[in-house]
Design a protein around this nucleic acid. Structure first.
Lengths: 144, 144
DNA sequence: AGAGAAATTGCATATAATAGCACTTGATGA
DNA sequence: TCATCAAGTGCTATTATATGCAATTTCTCT
């Protein structure tokens, strides 16, 4: 599958066990190339591992998060969304009035990271930020 | 009490009902001047309203959040922490290795907000950010 | 002060996420 | 290839948070 190979290698290199459960969950996430919730991942990975438990999904994600393979995005829906942390970091502007979601590239946050490092010596992760506020349209039109 | 007066006024002005429950919860939070969890607020506010329910606390906080009276801080403990949004916004740097928490002032995030407004016309809230990463000490000493 | 509409509460319950524990499995090295 | 052991899994229980609904309360208008 190719996608799986990389997941296995990455896990092993990081000193984690590459169990079928983890492989299924993480390659599902990596393969999708988008945000997915824990229950979406459960459903998807169950196609390969029917006995898979939601608690295993959460533990897999927690472990992968520690290894910085995956990141979380809290988009204001009930559930946390997870994403594979490839090269192209991005963030989201979420309008709390109309709900519109706009994707922004890493530049803005990257310069924040630089400032924090210069001033505090702190290496910030800044994997994904969900930034809430009011979008251009809703500022103009009011209730547009 | 003074603290209560302001909470009542603020609620009414925003078109919300000032119930004893809400007053107790919100003035507890405002009065404390720090982050508090929902269950801490329940315990505190129960001193005035013994029958108070945790669900009412959550709903009160959700309503006040919409009005931008309070903000949330996810500090990486199990529970969300709430804070009264006065003038002095601040943020936190949290070391994911040693757990150290450092408070930073709003400046860094404020300039991010400016950039987002100039480039996207987006008015970002940026009430509180919990920024995870590795602190200066842990970078040097390794396992300091 | 009192009536009525609309919001809020309490209670019960649902959902999301985490944790304990005994059993199983993957990685390691002989 | 097989034994060993730590790590991971399934299952269950628990915690954190959210929601439906009937009864109650606040606010507004008179």
């Amino acid at each position: 599958m190719g996608c799986e190979e990389e997941v296995v290698t990455t896990l092993r290199k990081a000193g984690q066990k590459a169990t079928p459960q983890r492989i299924a969950v993480l390659s599902a996430l990596r393969h999708s190339g988008r945000h997915m919730t824990a229950s979406e991942l459960l459903a998807e990975a169950k196609r390969q591992i029917p006995v898979l438990e939601i608690s295993t999904v959460y533990r897999t994600l927690a472990a992968a998060k520690e290894l910085r393979l995956v990141g979380e995005a809290r988009m204001g829906t009930g559930e946390v969304e997870y994403e594979w942390l490839g090269q192209n970091r991005h963030h989201h502007l979420i309008c709390r009035q109309c709900g519109q979601v706009e994707r922004i590239e890493d530049t803005y946050l990257a310069s924040l990271a630089i400032a924090l490092f210069e001033n505090y010596g702190f290496r910030a992760d800044l994997d994904h930020f969900a930034i809430f506020g009011i979008c251009r349209n809703c500022q103009k039109g009011g209730r547009g």
